[in-house]
Design a protein around this nucleic acid. Structure first.
Lengths: 227, 227
DNA sequence: AAAAGTAATTATGAATTCAATATTCCTTTG
DNA sequence: CAAAGGAATATTGAATTCATAATTACTTTT
């Protein structure tokens, strides 16, 4: 089964607007001008408006009837809600992975785990994050649940733009590594319940929420008209 | 055929197509003709096509480039994946609800619970299901997590059309009621972990999957062109 | 008659046009 | 001078039109 790869204009446009949002070129709460984006992408309003509708469904922007679209403002609560959800999904992915994962796949994850430990020992933050992500993605993939993966990916997309502000204190970092040690052990024992539990409680998300408390704009509206 | 003349035409159209799918007026795998639906709803292709894009994003239909749209065929695996996910989300809703729910809300759910027991004793299946659903919805609402509720509602939408075939054996039914007794107890103690666990393991979903094993079309394609 | 090729038809993808609603800017009035 | 009112402008919502790809129907050939 090969995935159908869709090369529709509206999808292309939606992805590129998504990128703009992710990289902050479109600010939270900022009104999105159709014409401006049409000029920028060199497309007509039809596919652009389709893209906006899709992005609204995906939760990245919101549409105000007769008043255009704007980038969703991420409140602290919003991000917290999303992370809570992602943690639950990771928990499920762990439970399922234990049921379906092959020895080879476990070995591959063990490999990644060891690499990650190496980065931790060297305090190489970025490589650490990268391998860390790969581990979580591998477990997610091993869950063998397409709907789960789709949903996780959507949630991940929504909060991607705040991930830039990720900071890591030594204390949290060492705890996260300990979590990962336990994860590996549970996975290699294929202890479904345990891995699920660990992943649900895994600090990663909560750290970020804590860190973000000061980062995210809460109430202030500059270019936002209330509805 | 009632002509639609409301604001946010695409949303209206999307909802109505959703209804058609839910009630089986558009069959799984059936190709969706734009013109036909345009005539039916009395709208032009622009809002209709926007609606299709939204429905595709919501997972109810799939778009084949240059070849139109068709209703997603629910495979057994697909439904199972979705239910696994919904169970995880219900678990989370239980955990969160314990943290945020008020005494009054608990009392209201206790009320519903008692009503449900009454329906169970009388073997009134439909009223039972209805109150049952209200209980789960109340807990979900008490979770105080908007993103969670949005996602749950989306998943629920996707599998709504197979719920018609719900059957209940006496054995499963009594077990489901026992689950609910435990749920109530955990909720009244505000035992977050326990309620979460119970809801994740709650039989309801698994029953349906088991029941559905014979109901859902698995492989047979009549009007479906492979890609 | 079956298969292959080609023209005719239909359906989809995208741009444009028309209609409505909102916004801006200017004038008027208290 | 501030607030209110009202054209003028800009923006969005939806229908229509144009372009292109897919499907069907019809030949032609073997």
């Amino acid at each position: 089964m090969t995935k159908i790869l869709q090369r529709n204009l509206y999808r292309e446009v939606a992805d590129r607007i998504g990128d703009l949002i992710e990289h902050g070129e479109l600010s939270p709460g900022e009104r999105i001008s159709e014409k401006q984006l049409c000029d920028r992408f060199g497309v007509s309003r039809t596919p652009l408006r389709e893209a906006l509708k899709v992005l609204a469904t995906e939760g990245l922007i919101e549409l105000l009837p007769n008043r255009g679209a704007r980038v969703v403002r991420l409140t602290l609560k919003n991000v917290k809600d999303t992370y809570d959800l992602m943690a639950a999904l990771e928990g499920l992915s762990g439970e399922l992975a234990c049921q379906y994962i092959s020895d080879a796949e476990i070995a591959a994850i063990r490999q990644l785990h060891n690499t990650m430990l190496e980065h931790y020992r060297n305090r190489d933050l970025m490589p650490y994050f990268q391998v860390n992500r790969q581990i979580h993605e591998s477990i997610l993939a091993a869950s063998n649940n397409d709907v789960l993966q789709e949903m996780y990916s959507n949630l991940s997309q929504r909060v991607k733009r705040v991930r830039y502000s990720k900071k890591m204190t030594e204390r949290y970092w060492s705890q996260a590594v300990k979590d990962h040690e336990n994860m590996m052990a549970a996975l290699e024992k294929r202890d479904s319940q345990l891995l699920g539990q660990i992943l649900r409680d895994h600090l990663c998300n909560k750290i970020e929420v804590a860190t973000l408390a000061g980062v995210i704009d809460t109430e202030d509206d500059k270019n936002v008209a209330n509805s």
